[in-house]
Design a protein around this nucleic acid. Sequence first.
DNA 1: CTGACTATCCCCCTTTAGGGGGAATGGCGC
DNA 2: GCGCCATTCCCCCTAAAGGGGGATAGTCAG
Lengths: 266, 266
Amino acid sequence: MGQALASFSFGVQEESLQTFRLVQQFVDAANRASTLQQVELLLEQISLEMGFDYYALIHHVDHRARNKASSVRLENYPKPWVEKFLEKKMYSWDPIHVASYATNLAFAWSDVPDMITLTKRQQDVLRSALDEGIGDGITVPANLPGEANGSCSFALRRGKTLRREYIGAIQLIGSFAFQSARNLALEAARSTATTGRVDLSPRQLDCVLLAGRGKSDWEIATILGIKEDTVTQHLDSARERYGVAKRVQLILRAVHAGQIALTDLL
Amino acid sequence: MGQALASFSFGVQEESLQTFRLVQQFVDAANRASTLQQVELLLEQISLEMGFDYYALIHHVDHRARNKASSVRLENYPKPWVEKFLEKKMYSWDPIHVASYATNLAFAWSDVPDMITLTKRQQDVLRSALDEGIGDGITVPANLPGEANGSCSFALRRGKTLRREYIGAIQLIGSFAFQSARNLALEAARSTATTGRVDLSPRQLDCVLLAGRGKSDWEIATILGIKEDTVTQHLDSARERYGVAKRVQLILRAVHAGQIALTDLL
DNA sequence: CTGACTATCCCCCTTTAGGGGGAATGGCGC
DNA sequence: GCGCCATTCCCCCTAAAGGGGGATAGTCAG
């Protein structure tokens, strides 16, 4: 497996200032957007201005099955391709998506073979996309711990040659676009469900932290130097506070509430 | 809890081209760097050029305990602060770090209270940093699924006022710097240990998702319309893939790897 | 002082998870 | 075709989690 060849540019010298202004305008507009439709319109405009045919700002999840409130999908790919994509559940192993888990930087699709080792199935995906008229493109990763992975891509129709000059600009545009869309989706999701903030006691936190690391009640008791029943009691009352019945839910609620960090449990 | 106020700028109009060239130069140099020492030197130079006193390009892990090969720590914070930071294991719940899990964009430290709800302990951290002479700063998140979270920060001495004009430039500089450092560290670590990305099968994902919502094996079986033993089997093999023994750890690994979203489980 | 909360410990019980074995089917890659 | 993997199902057993019921002692605010 090779490494992502970090490349960067804002366009040739005489164009760079102009490109920069394009980015500035996009970011300002994205920050002002109050609906996902507005963000999508901005994506459409900017992709045209930069000479792209397709855009895709998506969370890598099953958009048919999940609660759509918290996951975003803004794209203008050919419908048959989208159908096939969802049908085969490609979102979890599509080579472009997998490559986006290997870097924080924007990358050209034609560089993907240098970034990850492609399985035959993944090579088929690239060919399959080509058949649907999708050529080369650029993808900006958008991964947040504890959230579904996502990305913002811009692509060309088959046969067109990718201009890499704007990859620096696209890095910024993609990042800001995704954040804007994500915030709007989260806002919409938040309005439905209100979650009151609950804090755990220090000792409860100790137990929850260790439970989150996969320790059993007995192990936690041994580590903390108290009886197993006491640990059980702490975890019982912690679950009661969050109003959940299972250990798994307790840990996830504590992580979501910021009481413990996901990285502290791994 | 408010939302991150995405802001962007390359500096005032007459300075923007100059700032852009600074970014371009940094990125070019970062791409050419062949050792972590070179990257650190670049960080030192660029932080000076942009008027910062401190830089910190770090993975959010225990740098004393873990295998240092794959985790990066380049920083010039005051030694007492670093000592205290590691001593109290702040890397896992430091408010700046936690805030960096909520966005992909560079953010000012003074905006953190608008991004996440600070616990009392986290407020103490900010005061404690101030006591050590560390004032405001800007952090660029660097989170990759399946890897330790990280970030690249630039900070000022206490009392100085943060100039937000360069936050767009810093977004790029931080991202490229981190990727460069990460690649170099990985290259060095690749010889010893290989940490491959692990994917779950579609059916395993179905089971893990429901298990993460607190369902029992029997309930999952009923929902999916298969036998309980099959569900157990899927969860067994899923746990085996991640090399973990407990259900809780399985869910957390899947969440951290971006296979399922935390918000889909609550 | 009293009531609320915390932390500690003890008992009972049922359900669930985890650790061992197996086996049959179908798809895909080499 | 052969091997690997995903998916489905079956058996065994022990360990752990969850749902009840208690008790004692300390802190802290009203």
